[in-house]
Simulated scan of single mutants.
Amino acid sequence: MEYRKLGNSGTIVTSYCLGTMTFGAEADETTSHLILDDYVEAGGNFIDTANVYSLGVSEEIVGRWLKARPEAASQVVLATKGRFPMGAGPNDIGLSRKHLNRALEDSLRRLGVEQIDLYQMHAWDALTPIEETLRFLDDAVSAGKIAYYGFSNYLGWQVTKAVHVAKANHWSAPVTLQPQYNLLVRDIEHEIVPACLDAGMGLLPWSPLGGGWLAGKYQRDVMPSGATRLGENPNRGMESFGPRNAQERTWQIIDAVAEIAKDRGASAAQVALAWVEARPAVTSVILGARTREQLADNLGASKVKLSAEETDKLTRISMPQMSDYPYGERGVSQRFRKMEGGR
């Protein structure tokens, strides 16, 4: 795996991060620890979790692994998140100082560490003033409880507002954003990627395989079944399979990925992951493996470097739909580019 800077910080992480949302839910503790062992043995040093994953169980599993392997733990860059409800009370949710203070302390306890390397706001909170959230995070950095902070699932204007409010108040700046990003879901390229590039923030894409679609798990017009996330959850399958299955673009992308994978002797997942890893602003791609076999296959993507021709083919065929205004050929952004001589 390549080493890259964690956004605009000086900390170095591997280009593939191990996500732990499956820990305590789809992977028991024994399997989860083996997945962690395999990841570190393969050279990975970046682990991402969240307090809401299995309501704290994922953090506890990671914490016990860190305690049992102090040598590995000393080299790991550890990330977690706070924002979503961890209780039934009105202050058990959100990005207020009150909730974040408790959420951070609970995460530190479950993980068994004195400092979290990257603390991420799991989603925007429209009720809490951004100044309150950012001041809390700056205080947490000063207190040594976190080294850096970032966001997840923020819009472009939210990222930019947070960056400028932090700068205006001389507070610590955010270093990363964790968005959904894959060949099927590229809408962040309209506003969010430019906002992060402008701020020097790194992207940590989640769901880089589109929930298994880009791994070649599903067939056109065939409802998922068996050992897949949609197959094991009929309600979720009914809700998400139909709309995506109905889009011709979905199958054009899947077919293109499969064709390149066949020519290279690689898996479809490896090709899809390699495309995401090479995108602008991407620091580290989050792998959400449920089994050791899935992780091994995903990590094989680190050896796949797509050619310019392959990259162009995938990029063109997966181009997100854009309305004429303001992004399309007759939109304002295109007019300005033409006026500026194509810059």
Rank of each mutant, 00 (worst) to 15 (best):
L177V: 13
A147K: 15
F23H: 03
G7Q: 08
G112W: 04
H170G: 04
L127E: 12
D297R: 04
A143F: 12
R264E: 08
T20H: 02
P224N: 10
Y148R: 08
D37M: 09
G19T: 05
W157S: 08
L184K: 00
S152E: 07
S58D: 02
S284Y: 00
S152R: 11
S323V: 09
G237H: 07
A199M: 04
A42L: 03
P194R: 06
L203G: 11
I61T: 04
Q115R: 14
A88T: 14
P70D: 11
V282Y: 10
S54H: 15
H170Y: 10
R249I: 04
F23S: 00
H164M: 14
G112V: 01
G265S: 13
T160F: 09
I35D: 03
G94K: 03
K5R: 09
L34R: 13
F46G: 01
S333I: 02
Q120W: 03
A50D: 01
T30Q: 15
I188F: 03
A195G: 11
G226P: 04
L273F: 04
T30D: 10
A166P: 03
P85M: 10
T11R: 02
R335C: 03
R343H: 15
V113G: 00
D92T: 14
K81A: 13
E60F: 06
W206M: 01
T250K: 09
T311C: 12
A168K: 07
I188Q: 00
E329Q: 09
F84I: 08
W65S: 02
I192Q: 07
L183E: 05
S172T: 15
V76Y: 08
A301I: 11
K81G: 07
K145C: 12
I12Y: 05
A272G: 08
G82V: 01
V257T: 06
Y148T: 11
H33S: 00
